[in-house]
Design a protein around this nucleic acid. Structure first.
Lengths: 329, 329
DNA sequence: CTGAAAGCGCTAACAG
DNA sequence: CTGTTAGCGCTTTCAG
């Protein structure tokens, strides 16, 4: 049915080997020969059969993106963004992409073999044993939005410290001194990054911290609202709250509304992730934007480089985030 | 490196043909023979090579999910949900999934051939000519969240009319009579479904409609807010507004806040899509939940049935949505 | 019910 | 720079 390399070979009068080369390594065939091949191919509407190629080369050119998180919703806005970047980049390459959750993956470890994955991009809180498993199977690994102590792995990150710095600098510029943080218990790596960045930058900027300056909560609206209410119920309440993510910030806004505090007049609020909800909240939420799509794209670039055996120059790539100032500050 | 069918054949003492059958059509090999084969396979950690199988069978078992929409963000919450369902279901099958936008797809039409797609699931506003193109190439097509007049295609939908009915019934039960709609210009199919459902159900429930009962806007926060302000600025303003989606509902909430209207006391608001923002808004937004994950799952079920040549019993599958009642009503 | 053998379309030595 | 040729791992007639 579809034309094969033989048809092209016959029509162009060269061997199949040459046709093959003309497509996969053009530099190895003389200019005019190549043109003849390409013309014949065009005429026949030929394009190489990926399956046959994979078979012969003993490579699948298949990579996977595994999302490591517990929630029911695996494609939340953040990972959807990364996913988009990954898809864009793989679609333009010759690689195939398989997307799954780490959990589903483990369940289907038998089919996993069949899927012949050559490299895995791990998004989020990847368990160390999963990583080791891949390494023993000689499957390339790239981390996105995570870093695993003890594993020297290529990773693509957003600069959390810089993000927090932008937040605090902005708040200070707005005249705030009494700044508190609502830290969230979500992905360990990210949570701890933002938490420690807050401590560090606050010190750098001489922002006074005390026992009540930081409160923990779950990244759910109720938990966040509750925590914010406590934070704001203190005698010497903060004039600004930095929430570890946008959901927590939304909870803070709810708390402010209940206490009759006007935002940003009585209280400034900043979130993190610049999710779709930011402009929808009233007032619109100031938040830190991480370059998720770029992170996705870069992770497959790194992966393809790895698979091509290119020497890794830098292990971790860290992208600068950007503070999006809106109505809450 | 990996064990092949030959290894299993040798170890189990049967021919490769039998090993092959034992895996792909177990009924065609005698019970004990099959067991011997399976044991040998187990011992060797053998699992069939998908590439070789595809090569021999002249089938790729590869399907694509194409998202048809204009926005920069292709994986918005709605499609991310559908996508999750699709991924879940394909991961548990032997099918490969390629995800892309319709736009990217067209750009890469040359590589598209290489990708050897056997079926396409089209999400959203699929252009009719794209569909025709696939049909002439004998590529199976399934529609999700869309329906194309003039094309008799299998499609998976959420029952928009039922969703709107639940909304209006709920509002009426709450004592509302002056109900307006903020209709949005987004996906043509969905927009028009919700719009016409509103007209129809309002009539059924004897809800009085007049020229100012329905306003159009773009599905962006500013446009929605503006439209809502106009709607609420009328002398005989509505006591309830049904927004065609959650973003528009958020705009309505903003408008209410600016006008000093208290929700739900002075004004009830209902959205559509039950997105993540609903619980985060203040008050939390009542909204219609469509079973997006199921839609995704069903679309690949339908696709695999199509590809397996199973007779199509029903062309369209329509899932019932569910109204999630929250603080705004 | 099982085996022998001919491909599926392409690549990669190895020669020339 | 180009051609010959032997596979890659599995399925599938066609015989038995």
């Amino acid at each position: 049915m579809n034309p094969t390399i033989y048809d092209v070979s016959r029509l162009s009068g060269v061997s199949t080997a040459t046709v093959s080369r003309a497509f996969s390594d053009p530099s190895r065939v003389r200019e005019d020969t190549r043109r003849r091949v390409l013309e014949a191919a065009e005429l026949l509407h030929y394009s190489p059969n990926a399956i046959a190629r994979a078979m012969a080369r003993q490579r699948t050119d298949k990579i996977a993106f595994l999302i490591c998180k517990k929630d029911a919703t695996i494609l939340d806005e953040f990972y959807a963004g990364i996913c988009e970047g990954i898809m864009q980049e793989t679609n333009r390459s010759d690689y195939q992409l398989v997307i799954s959750t780490a959990a589903d993956w483990r369940l289907a470890s038998d089919t996993a073999q069949r899927k012949q994955i050559e490299g895995v991009i791990l998004g989020g809180n990847a368990p160390a044993d999963l990583v080791s498993e891949f390494q023993t199977q000689h499957i390339a690994v790239v981390l996105v939005n995570n870093r695993i102590p003890g594993h020297e792995l290529p990773c693509i990150l957003s600069d959390e410290t810089d993000g927090v710095r932008q937040v605090l600098a902005h708040l200070v510029a707005r005249g705030h001194r009494k700044i508190a943080m609502l830290a969230g218990r979500f992905s360990p790596y990210i949570s701890s990054e933002r938490y420690h960045a807050f401590l560090q930058i606050a010190q750098e900027l001489n922002i006074p911290l005390h026992a009540q300056s930081i409160k923990m909560c779950d990244p759910e609206i109720e938990s966040a609202t509750r925590a914010a209410l406590e934070l704001l119920g203190q005698p010497d309440r903060p004039t600004a709250i930095f929430a570890a993510n946008d959901v927590i910030a939304a909870g803070t806004l709810k708390a402010a509304a209940r206490l009759g505090l006007r935002v940003p007049h009585d209280l400034a609020v900043v979130g993190y992730d610049d999710s779709a909800i930011c402009p929808l909240l009233e007032p619109a939420l100031t938040s830190v934007h991480s370059k998720v799509r770029s992170m996705g794209r870069l992770s497959v670039e790194r992966m393809t480089a790895l698979l091509a055996g290119e020497p890794v120059t830098e292990l971790s790539t860290v992208l600068p985030p950007k503070l999006m100032v809106r109505g809450t500050t």
